[in-house]
Design a protein around this nucleic acid. Structure first.
Lengths: 358, 358
DNA sequence: CAAGAACGAAAAATCGATTTATCGAATGGA
DNA sequence: TCCATTCGATAAATCGATTTTTCGTTCTTG
């Protein structure tokens, strides 16, 4: 073990060099694995490294290269399971390749997104994994393009003419949700979402609508979206039910919508699935322990992260082929929140379901 | 706006210098705000900066200083709301001071925690905000001590003889939960938790127990903890109820425990609060929309982050006073999951509650 | 045996800033 | 008028690595 007093200056490559009786260049080569060094000298270098507890300063090491061994990650937020595990995955993958991941939250603001990107450009990051706030056409992607940055766009994107994109196959997953609901006999379905995040949400809506209509041309699909935030969505939903609309199922295109739907159900005293069925895009840990468990579309976080990093490093290493647009398949989890219409009274009564013991 | 072709080498301080007709040293001084520069030259520098779109390279800029303008943050995980928003807050605060935050997830592993710390030491970070996996006595804190790193410990810590600590006042919050439950007439309460995270969980347990006993000396408090992970906790809980134990309330010392309790309740067909009351340490967005809404202790994330950063920068700037141990007050949210014992039948039946409309 | 290739390692240049040392010109006082 | 300050700015050193260039040996080979 290295004996190094606390608060003391850390040993530099020159300290190692003098201890080993060689030049700094030789130390650098030994540590880089160059083979044109006499074995005896290499051993002396390793010994000195061990004795001094020397470790390369990544900052100094990166100085001379145009692309530093840093990957930037920009997420709309860190508070959700989805982006939280996305960052965890990306961090691990970057680390595996000897890169440092610097993650930042755009806090759902495109202006901030661009500022962060500019700062990452200042750092001369090798590449960026950007989960844009809205879609691939925002100012951030434009900035990346204008400055020749290499990057991959994920999540709220469909395809781009300059960057590789990776996202969940929202269209296919939504089609499966449609099959599930139509198959259960639902013929009046409400879809809720936030239109801001155009790219994915639109795909989710279209995937659902097209499949639902294909299976039952007379199905009635109502859509409630909000441009701005979740608050208007809540009041629109309240108005909608207040007008006496009674769909038998709700499909929420995003997690926050699922929460809004649930809270509105509970305000009105409705139960899933007796009074109304519910499916949400995006899964969360709590959804399987609530009563009832909420059916959900599970996004393939791991695959998205892994594919994004593969593509990114291919570009970092110089690949200049045309950009690709990948869609990773989702899993649709059927849970108790989905039933057949009319299986329960629409208001009041209705014993709670009693799941079998053990 | 700067006219800069894509993919072109970024302008360096020397480019600015030659465009402005001065030396690089002068440019550096102007940008650092030194006043001993002729106003005319300063203006020429600003003009050149503007024209070239020059921005300082933070990496190069940090080379010469012993402490780089980087703050490291190590969290046990990124998947939860708590640590997610903690990182968001820390990032904002670091940014305000012109520092870059590099966040990493120890994934609940002390070994990994130490490795990450070593890597951050390699980067010569100015300071570290460490949320240790277990408590302040882990190998990570020891590493920091041994290498003279400056840092602040947060969340799962009580106090330390080398570092400032900041955490939620678990003891006081748990005492308030005790007042709430005892006040509602509960006299047989189950407390569940994971003992691994000794520091805080123990405080939560003791705070609850002491206050509960003070209010009702004959109260029966059962405790189920697991050393390792959440799985044993689940089976212990199953066994406990299987033996016929029927506490009237459960207090979970951490979020995962709340989920385990809920899922066990639902497996047995029990309802809150008719069959059993539930309070959890740590709040989450979904807890207020479930049926019933779950009473919870809200941790003061913002205050913890802000206080941690204040203390950290005080140390970075050289303060060598004795370490402080701060406790930030929590808020206890009473919700529907808590009722009085015996208000509902203990098994079977029991109409669901119908909250009033609007 | 001498010219040339091959080898291994040291010296020097480089990355992009900051900081210290140096230097010339203008200013001031004697 | 001359020397000592002061001022403003430049040259040079520095941070800690990597990479290129240079250089001295040893090994080939005609």
């Amino acid at each position: 073990m290295a004996q190094q007093e606390a608060r003391q200056r850390r040993p530099s490559i020159h300290d190692v060099a003098s201890h080993a009786g060689v030049s700094a260049a030789t130390v650098s080569k030994v540590l880089a694995g160059v083979t044109t060094v006499k074995p005896e000298n290499a051993q002396r270098v390793f010994d000195a490294v061990e004795r001094l507890g020397y470790r390369v300063d990544p900052l100094a090491s990166d100085m001379r290269r145009a692309k530093r061994r840093i990957i930037g990650a920009i997420m709309p937020e860190f508070e959700s399971e989805f982006f939280g595990s996305m960052v965890t995955e990306l961090e691990g993958l970057a680390e595996q390749r000897g890169y440092t991941l610097v993650a930042a939250s755009s806090r759902e603001s495109e202006a901030r997104e661009k500022e962060i990107l500019a700062r990452m450009h200042d750092w001369r990051v090798a590449g960026v994994v950007l989960a844009p706030v809205r879609n691939e056409h925002g100012p951030a992607a434009a900035f990346m393009k204008a400055h020749g940055m290499t990057g991959v766009l994920i999540d709220r994107v469909l395809s781009d003419d300059a960057f590789d994109t990776v996202s969940a196959d929202s269209f296919a997953a939504s089609a499966e949700v449609a099959r599930m609901l139509i198959g259960n006999g639902h013929s009046h379905i409400l879809v809720i979402g936030l239109a801001e995040q155009a790219a994915t949400v639109r795909a989710r809506l279209e995937g659902f609508r097209s499949q639902a209509l294909a299976l039952n041309p007379s199905v009635r699909i109502d859509v409630i979206t909000s441009e701005v935030s979740v608050a208007p969505l809540r009041s629109s939903l309240r108005d909608y039910f207040g007008r006496g609309e009674r769909p038998t199922a709700v499909y929420s295109l995003l997690l926050k919508g699922t929460l809004v739907a649930l809270s509105e159900f509970r305000r009105r005293g409705w139960h899933c699935p007796d009074d109304i069925s519910l499916v949400g895009f995006d899964d969360a840990e709590w959804m399987q322990v609530t009563w009832p468990a909420i059916a959900a579309v599970v996004q393939p976080v791991r695959q998205i992260a892994s594919e994004a990093m593969n593509l990114l490093f291919r570009r970092v290493e110089g690949d200049a082929g045309p950009p690709t647009a990948r869609l990773e398949p989702c899993q649709v989890l059927m849970r108790e929140s989905v039933g057949s219409p009319g299986s329960g009274p629409h208001s009041g009564g209705g014993d709670r379901q009693q799941p079998p013991l053990s």
